[in-house]
Design a protein around this nucleic acid. Structure first.
Length: 493
DNA sequence: AGCACA
């Protein structure tokens, strides 16, 4: 043994109440580490799954002598410290206390946040998730979603103990291969706790389930297969229709406020809710109508038109996968016209709250349950472009954890493609008014017809009274019913 | 197999 090697790690020799454990098994659970350490004293803190490989941990004893006794014991023991048969290396930490050992995801609760790594959203059906986690207790609710972190699921158990047992057993584990499509490689579960205590599931769908309420309606637009935008032979997208429109606003030289959106879209029917958000640097808005027909009318009439003269704020409309927006009733980016009383907002527990929770880690530390509230009045982080892919995997009955499971409640029904009448969804208009995306020479204006009747296509678009310059910024020029002949655009950019 | 950033 060279003196240099002794010097190399000399600094680790200073005793500390905190021990550094390394070479732990993959995603070793906190309980396993405690089991190893607690014979030597009282553990006051741990920090697990640290290091690049998440196979290290820190354990803080109440007393320095307890830490010394553990190090001393294994220094002289013929049997090394082991977890799951794997030798664990124990040294004094170079710090003397564990600070902030609990990240929010480590605060136990009855709802787990599960990240399924290495899969696409369509690879793991909600039935498979349910199957896997049901082995540990009754799964009340599941909500799945896609975020930057990947495909995730919130899984609600009855209590924190059940959730903890599932977490301890499955964190870092993989979903069995036979439950996955063949093309999926590794598929590790990364599990932490959610701050939620009760998920608000609005529909039984391919992405959310409430097993406590079998009578919950099935979201008609979220049935498997329905949401996947089919591509026809001509390459046109055939989206499922919806009562909610997704408006992308191109060339947004002027502010587009909730009020502006409301004004424009109210021409075709009652606008129930609006949410404005940014997506890939482009402003988009979700506009909710009471029914699909109204939305279709508005879509037909507004597609390709500009809110302002001069080719500004050009609208591109598609159907959202949403059917009922959960938005803050009054904010600068959203409006819920069905909730006149702001105090009602608390009762409008948005199912999107957990999405928001994912997007912005602003859950109050230690504060119980941000349940049912959109935190901070933020606009929910809608991600309408993430169109869920219909699971190609049909979960078959099988056994897992020694239990036999029935077939999934939802068979992958064939997409009722015929129900989508939209055959002219091409982004490029074939009409005379060739609204060049880059060089809009002729102004196409929003035609507002309060009756909503006989919406005009882009080719027969009437014009607004004037350019935004004449009207001042921020106010679209709307002339109800004042249909001018086509080609009479007064503004030439 | 060698130190934490939530």
């Amino acid at each position: 043994m060279s003196t240099s090697s002794q010097h190399q790690f000399r600094y680790t020799q200073t005793p500390s109440k905190v021990l550094h454990l390394r070479n732990l098994p993959w995603e070793c659970a906190e309980e396993e580490i405690k089991e190893l350490c607690k014979p030597f004293g009282k553990i006051v803190n741990t920090k697990c799954n640290v290091g690049a490989n998440r196979n290290q941990a820190f354990v803080e004893f109440a007393d320095l002598n307890q830490a010394i006794s553990m190090v001393s014991y294994y220094a002289s023991s013929s049997e090394p410290a082991q977890v799951r048969g794997k030798t664990v290396y124990i040294q004094y930490s170079n710090r003397h206390e564990i600070v902030n050992n609990k990240s929010p995801g480590d605060v136990p609760g009855n709802v787990l946040l599960v990240t399924i790594e290495g899969v696409e959203a369509g690879d793991v059906s909600i039935d498979v998730i349910h199957l896997v986690f049901s082995a540990f207790g009754f799964v009340h609710k599941i909500a799945t979603f896609e975020k930057a972190a990947g495909f995730q699921a919130l899984i609600q158990f009855s209590d924190a103990d059940t959730a903890a047992s599932a977490r301890n057993a499955l964190d870092g584990r993989s979903i069995p291969r036979y439950l996955l499509p063949e093309h999926v490689g590794s598929c590790h579960l990364r599990i932490s706790y959610s701050a939620h205590t009760d998920l608000n599931i609005k529909f039984q769908s391919h992405r959310s389930r409430d097993y406590t309420n079998p009578y919950l309606p099935v979201n008609p637009t979220a049935i498997e297969g329905m949401v996947q935008p089919a591509v026809g032979p001509d390459g046109k997208k055939k989206e499922p229709e919806s009562n909610v429109l997704l408006a992308s606003i191109e060339n947004m030289q002027y502010a587009v406020t909730v009020d502006v959106i409301h004004t424009v879209f109210s021409a075709f029917g009652t606008v129930q809710k609006i949410a404005i958000f940014e997506k890939n640097g482009q402003t988009q808005a979700l506009v909710q109508y009471p029914d699909v027909t109204t939305a279709a009318t508005a879509r037909e009439a507004l597609e390709g038109h500009c809110i302002y003269d001069g080719g500004f704020c050009k609208l591109h409309l598609s159907y959202s996968r949403h059917t009922d927006l959960n938005v803050k009733a009054f904010s600068d980016k959203s409006r819920d016209y069905t909730v006149p009383d702001p105090s009602m907002l608390a009762a409008q527990a948005p199912a999107a709250a957990w999405q928001n929770f994912q997007a912005s880690p602003m859950y109050p530390g230690g504060s119980p349950a941000v349940q049912g509230q959109v935190p901070g009045g933020q606009v929910p982080s809608w991600d309408p472009t993430v169109q869920a892919v219909a699971p190609s995997y049909a979960s078959a009955p099988g056994t897992f954890h020694g239990q036999t499971y029935a077939a999934p409640a939802y068979s992958p029904a064939a997409m009722p493609a015929a129900s989508s009448p939209l055959s002219h969804t091409s982004p490029v208009s074939h009409n005379a008014n060739s609204l060049g995306i880059t060089q809009p020479r002729v102004q196409q204006n929003v035609n507002v017809q309060p009756s909503g009747a006989s919406p005009l296509g882009p080719g027969s678009s009437p014009v607004m009274e004037s350019s935004p310059d004449a009207q001042g910024l921020g106010q679209p020029t709307l002339r109800p019913g004042g249909a001018s002949p086509p080609g009479q655009a007064p503004y030439h950019g």
